[in-house]
Amino acid sequence: MNGQLLAQSLVLGILTGGLYGLTSVGLSLIFGIMRIINIAHAALIVLGSYLALALFRSFGLDPLLSILLLIPFFLLLGGAIQWGILDKLSSKDLTLTVLATFGVAIIVEGLQGAIWSSTYVSIRTPYSLSSVQVAGLYIPVVRVMAGLASFVLLAAVFVLLYRTNLGRAIRATTQNRTAAQLVGVHAGFVTTVAFAAGLAMAGAAGPLLGMLYSFYPATHWLLIGKLLAIVVLGGLGSLTGTFAAALVLGVAEQVAGVTLPLEWGPMLFYVLLFGTLIVRPQGFFGAVRRGSL
């Protein structure tokens, strides 16, 4: 196998990993604070793709710029879903809450089919077929843009979480909800903010994925499987672990694409997942906590 091809897939892998990071860190954030898996996460990513496509077709708005509109839209949508549905259920039963996110996924998928039909679409911009040449490697422009945009957005989220008061409150509530309430954190509000932020990351990832791959309303079922594999691999509850796992899987997927037979592709995530869990059941960064709780 030639070194150039390997270098190319490595770069592509890191860029893809960034995008996986953007999508799965949001899922991990929501899991951490609510203890539920948001089954609708990938459906909402695909919704972001469709909205970006609609904005592009109707107003010629560049998919990258549409992110600036999608973020506030998904923040509000996330706030509404959490406050209007999930919060009302979570006090009764967490299983019910997971089922509700499943319901949201079905509804979003159905609405997309009704509005945009169930056929494959993709976002084709004037630069969709161009490449940039870096150190002798040809990398498609859209992959560079999607990768870099993901890293910028992820950096913003990590700054929010680790450098602001609200971010500290989110992490505190995730680590010990009762203790957070007892230092004056309004846990309900902070949970809603975190859920909304997770959805905003999903929404922002929509246009980026939509520039790279074709999609249709049901694509989210394939995507959510990958995202869950990443979150579990990184260690439940660890955002840095999720990010690391996203990079590893992004690179593994690209490298496997040029080294392994084609049939391996779809299995790769799960092979890596089970392989890791056998050696390290808590995932990359999952903590084995001392003491109670």
Binding site: R171, A172, A179, V183
Partner: peptide
């Protein structure tokens, strides 16, 4: 029982006390 924020530093834990 334990009620620190286990993944935060000691300093951050105490700062959380001043959240308000």
């Amino acid at each position: 029982g334990r009620s620190t924020f286990p993944d935060m530093s000691v300093w951050e834990n105490v700062l959380m006390g001043a959240y308000t």
